[in-house]
């Protein structure tokens, strides 16, 4: 068996607004559109994914929040309806997805060996979180690949952003070892926004783009700084600056997803592909990917 590998790492924000704006048949709500900069960026990245040979998507989600270790989805199928608790007016999505349980078990075992508290989730009534569904739908609308969802252990809440980084690094490295042993080709997805301060009111028409803007200029400047570092391949520096960035912008990086993905990919020093940046209800959202293949890596934006 050949050695498994990570063929792509994606930063894939999950505002349910983006699925709402697409009007897929799985979602009950209807929209007139909106947030095109992000949706068109997602569409371009989804086209790139179609050109890549891979076996599974492994996604780290901030909306399956666990306080007792890191959990992995552990049953082969989940079929239900996901209703966003915050934006139920926008997102009521009927999902039917497959899980690569073999890969999930392998990651669970490798993570446990690294001394991290872990648990397999095997309750068939469990409802898959909307972060997983939103990011996976937008990256792969045909849902023709199995996924592995990893919960976010909230070390930032319980300890500090520094502890979060250490744990997320260890988790990423353990997942990488499991992937290599599996012989599989895997796409990693870190599902989150950058700056994450929301407006607490909503326009009567949520997709009214005349009302959409970043929460404040400070958030914007920080987001641009981070994206500039993505472009320049300065991921080691991004990891270093992460505690301050997360604190200053209430960033959704607090869940550890980006650090997890960077650690699994060996902290890339090559430029990220940037597919778009736009605010959603005040939060800053960037779609980006890290392509380890120099032949397919490109300058997108």
């Amino acid at each position: 068996m050949s050695k498994g590998e990570i063929v792509l790492g994606c930063l894939a924000p999950h505002p349910p607004h983006l699925v709402y704006a697409e009007n897929p048949p799985q979602n009950e709500a209807f929209s007139e559109g909106g947030w095109e900069t992000l949706r068109w960026g997602y569409a371009k990245l989804a086209r790139k994914l179609k050109t890549i040979d891979y076996d599974a998507i492994v996604i780290f989600t901030p909306h399956w929040q666990t306080y007792i270790g890191t959990h992995f989805l552990g049953l082969p199928e989940f079929k239900s309806k996901s209703v966003d608790p915050v934006f139920p007016n926008l997102f009521r999505y009927n999902y039917d997805l497959k899980v690569d349980v073999e890969l999930a078990e392998a990651m669970h075992e490798e993570t446990a060996k690294a001394g991290i508290i872990t648990k397999m989730m095997k309750n068939p009534d469990f409802r898959v979180d909307y972060g997983t569904i939103t990011s996976c739908h937008l990256l792969n609308p045909s849902w023709d690949k199995p996924i592995v969802t990893i919960s976010s252990n909230r070390n930032s809440h319980y300890y500090s952003n520094e502890v979060m980084i250490e744990q997320a690094k260890a988790l990423g490295e353990a997942c990488m070892r499991a992937i290599e042993k599996s012989g599989k080709k895997v796409v990693l997805v870190s599902s989150h926004s950058l700056s994450h301060r929301h407006f607490v009111t909503e326009a009567p028409l949520p997709e009214d783009m005349s009302r959409e803007h970043i929460y404040n200029h400070s958030q914007y400047v920080w987001d641009m700084k981070i994206i500039d570092m993505f472009r320049n391949g300065q991921m080691k520096e991004v990891v270093d600056i992460m505690p301050e960035y997360t604190e200053q912008t209430i960033a959704e990086t607090e869940a550890g997803g980006l650090i997890w993905m960077m650690a699994a990919m060996g902290v890339p020093s090559y430029p990220a592909e940037i597919y778009g940046y736009q605010s959603v209800i005040g939060t800053g959202n960037c779609i980006a990917c890290w392509d380890p293949n120099t032949e397919t890596r490109e300058l997108v934006l």
Binding site: W64, Q65, T66, Y67, I68, H71, K119, M121, K122, N123, D125, F126, R127, S151
Partner: peptide
């Protein structure tokens, strides 16, 4: 309903 952390206790 199933709890995010205590899913193993049941539905």
């Amino acid at each position: 309903h199933v709890d995010d952390d205590f899913h193993y206790l049941g539905s």
